[in-house]
Computed example of a mutant assay.
Amino acid sequence: MTPHGHFNWNEFVTRDPERAKAFYQETVGWTYQAKKLAGGGIYWIAMMDNVPVGGIFHAEGPGYENVPDGWMPYLAVDDVDIRVKKAVAAGATLMRPVFDIPDVGRLAILLQPGGAGIGWITPFA
């Protein structure tokens, strides 16, 4: 498990996952595994030498209209719920309620002071 305070995952958020997949496949050599999302859609797990190295998330639907393409890093934290309270008290904005992804972890999506996006995750063991 990734230790508290270390980067755990990186995810490319895009309206055009096929373009992003082609770019990274051609330039870096990534291959992909499709994972069905609970709410529908596909999450693409980027692989290098059969090892997951990141993900590609299709930003579609309500709430994503003004989200530009870009990388979203995720930090591992020891307790998302406690850390989010501290982050909000320190000036961060919680973008959506904390949520669980089965077999992955408990996540929060924040805008830190200054506006940069950051994901926090307490991975499930």
Rank of each mutant, 00 (worst) to 15 (best):
D16K: 02
N8T: 03
N66W: 14
P52W: 00
A90D: 15
N8I: 05
D78S: 13
A90S: 15
P62M: 02
A76Y: 10
P97E: 10
R96A: 07
V77P: 03
Y32G: 13
K21P: 04
G40A: 11
M47Y: 01
F12Y: 05
G114N: 02
A108D: 14
T122D: 09
R106Y: 09
G55Q: 00
P102N: 06
A20V: 00
A76T: 01
D16W: 00
G63C: 07
D78K: 14
G5L: 08
Y24E: 02
K21W: 10
G114F: 08
D100G: 12
K21Y: 05
A125Q: 11
N50P: 15
A108N: 14
D78R: 12
R19S: 03
T122P: 11
V77F: 07
V104W: 07
Y24F: 02
N10I: 03
L75G: 06
V84S: 11
L37C: 12
G91F: 08
L37P: 14
Y74R: 02
W30K: 01
P17K: 00
V67I: 04
R96E: 12
R106G: 11
T93P: 15
F12Q: 01
I109H: 15
H6C: 05
P68R: 07
A90H: 10
Y24T: 00
K86Y: 13
A87L: 07
V28R: 08
Q112T: 09
E18Q: 10
D16A: 08
E26I: 00
L107E: 12
N66L: 15
F12G: 00
V77Q: 09
E60T: 11
A125C: 13
L94M: 10
G119Q: 09
P68A: 12
P102F: 00
P62D: 05
D100W: 08
T14N: 05
K36P: 15
Q33G: 12
H6A: 05
E65L: 10
A116Y: 09
G54C: 03
Y43L: 11
G39L: 11
G40P: 06
R15V: 09
G115A: 15
K85R: 14
V88Y: 10
N66I: 07
A46H: 01
E60N: 10
E18L: 08
L37N: 15
V98Y: 06
E60Y: 11
P97G: 04
G105Q: 01
A89C: 13
P68F: 07
I82L: 15
A116E: 13
V104I: 08
V104M: 14
L107Y: 12
K35H: 11
G63A: 09
M72C: 13
R106C: 06
E65Q: 07
H58S: 09
F7T: 02
K85C: 13
V104Q: 14
M72E: 12
H58T: 04
V28E: 07
W9E: 01
I121H: 01
A116F: 10
V84K: 06
W120R: 10
F124G: 11
W71E: 04
M48Y: 02
G63W: 02
V51I: 06
T14C: 08
G115Q: 07
A34Q: 13
A20S: 03
Y24K: 01
G55M: 03
G70C: 03
Y32M: 04
R106I: 01
G55N: 02
P17M: 04
W30P: 08
F23M: 00
L111N: 15
